[in-house]
Write a protein that binds this DNA or RNA. Structure first.
Lengths: 319, 319
DNA sequence: TTGTAAGCGTTATCAG
DNA sequence: CTGATAACGCTTACAA
């Protein structure tokens, strides 16, 4: 492979001058620059990124620490991150579990976006102490070098459920996600606060796991209940879809027998019957914003707070 | 950050001996090794990956060139790739479009897996000439340093459609994907060959785009046809799901009025009514196999051909 | 405007 | 078994 040395030799200049020209520094005579650039082109020269990184002590790589690639929501956030990072000439290195640690410790990435529940708070706090900027998306965490943005689960669900109560519903059930899920727990909080605010003292709780199958099982459970809830709020859309399928199989009508709603605005929600009412987050935009902040951090710009990602209630036909 | 120099000094040895010990080379006295390792631990030393990469001329990074993160199939392949790569201590750098070029040219990755239609054959062939091993998943391509594995679209669809003909169906339509899609075109080939083999000379062709919405539109089109096909084969599951929704809205029964099937084994297919018959690929396994080959290549092992990824017909209730 | 040379943090050759 | 030392390919003071 050709190196800057070859270019310099061919152009008849020193290595440093070649470097200046190639990096577009102003201190090079136009003629020399032209000669160097031509030589580079003829030799099909491309700088060795690794060498550059070693010298500049920056990699231009941003780690994205994920648990896995599954889940539609997830891919949207990733996609937003990818777009923004790419626009700004950063590379994205994905990793999961403990491999992620090495990426930081071996200085292969300049910073990381964390979306991986396997990485405990303690672990993250520890890496932040080393000086690596970390942007955390799946929890709230306060510390130097740690930034975070989480969905306003509580506020959005509260607002939505209160609207539903005003619409006349007063007999609710909550189909949960995993009990260790940040999103699930805060959605449940919002749900309970809404009921409390409106003086509703009772609700059913059905444990589930954010999957279609789990929602389906929850639906079967409701079918077997003597006194069925009038409104079932599912902690995400996938479980809502499974839930709806089960109760439709059981002969119930949605929303006339049981009203249903979810969270996420999973695109399938528009293609089931009835169309699913949900709370939507603009995941791609969120990813872009997060990536934007990370870029500001590693390039020492002023970082702007992004707060919660944008969310909104999407009324369709299921309630 | 602490460097190997610090470790060497603390252990009272030369840099090279420290390096030997840290890299577990046999030529170090047990006592010295112990001293060095302890020093490393106390100083919380982690080797600088960039420096190592520069010296060894290998990065341990594999590029994964994608068009974007969207699509369920896609994430599964990625997930398989991620698992295998991670097991073998390789990092995965995702990229799309022309940023991907830089990754190779600047030697930030050792090889790449390509899943990005934006990268033309010419471009890929060119990179392969530089000596970068490329594994291509979305097309067939023959050249030095280029490896490829594609779904056996033609064979699987042919086999499936012939079975359906044997079952008694003889009046078919094909709902296509984008006309520039490798997968779509080969599925259509298989479809046509099956018909031809069985002496069926006519079929309907409805253009679509692999999306649920596109499938839905195709369904509306069929509803408006005077003479409707008896069996509609959709080039993927998402369009089949949209298609089914449209014709159900139009009051048709599946499979008694129109039978439907798809391709991919998208997990939603099990949660619609009737459950979708489809042709399934084990995408995660495929990703693992591909990653396995790439690893063999960059570590100079003997590479084993992987051929087509495993596929099978999954009979459910839609035909 | 250009060149010399130090150095980024490693690995690996060679001599001892 | 251990240590000097020369790379790897680049950027960047500093000198000329």
């Amino acid at each position: 492979m050709t190196t800057i040395k070859d270019v310099a030799k061919k152009a008849g200049v020193s290595i440093s001058t070649a470097s200046y020209a190639i990096n577009n520094l102003p201190n090079v005579h136009p003629d020399t620059r032209k000669r160097i650039l031509e030589a580079a082109k003829e030799l099909d020269y491309h700088p060795n990124g690794i060498a550059r990184n070693l010298k500049t002590q920056r990699t231009g790589n941003i780690g994205v620490f994920i648990y896995g690639f599954s889940g539609p929501i997830f891919s949207d956030v990733l996609e937003g991150i990818r777009q923004k990072l790419q626009e700004n000439n950063f590379n994205i290195v994905v990793s999961s579990g403990k491999s992620s640690a090495n990426l930081l410790l071996e200085r292969q990435v300049d910073a990381a976006i964390v979306f991986d529940g396997e990485l405990t708070d303690d672990i993250l706090l520890n890496y932040a102490k080393y000086g690596f900027p970390l942007f955390v998306l799946d929890r709230k965490l306060q510390a130097e070098n740690i930034y975070s943005s989480v969905i306003d689960n509580e506020g959005l669900v509260k607002q939505f459920i209160m609207q539903m109560i005003e619409k006349g519903y007063d007999d609710f059930a909550f189909v949960s996600g995993p009990s260790d899920s940040f999103n699930n727990n805060h959605r449940y909080e919002g749900f309970k606060i809404a009921l409390k605010n409106k003086g509703i003292t009772h609700h059913e709780f059905i444990e589930s796991d954010f999957t279609i199958q789990g929602g389906y099982n929850a639906g079967k459970k409701v079918l077997s209940m003597a006194k069925k809830p009038r409104f079932v709020y599912c902690a995400n859309d996938e479980s809502a879809i499974g839930f709806m399928r089960a109760i439709k199989e059981g002969g119930l009508r949605i929303p006339s027998d049981i009203a249903v709603a979810g969270f996420d605005n999973f695109y399938m929600g528009e293609f089931i019957s009835p169309k699913l009412t949900t709370i939507g987050i603009d995941h791609i935009l969120w990813g872009k914003q997060v990536a934007g902040v990370i870029i500001d951090i590693v390039t020492n710009q002023k970082v702007k707070e992004i707060g919660h990602p944008q969310g909104s209630i999407i009324m369709r036909k299921s309630c």
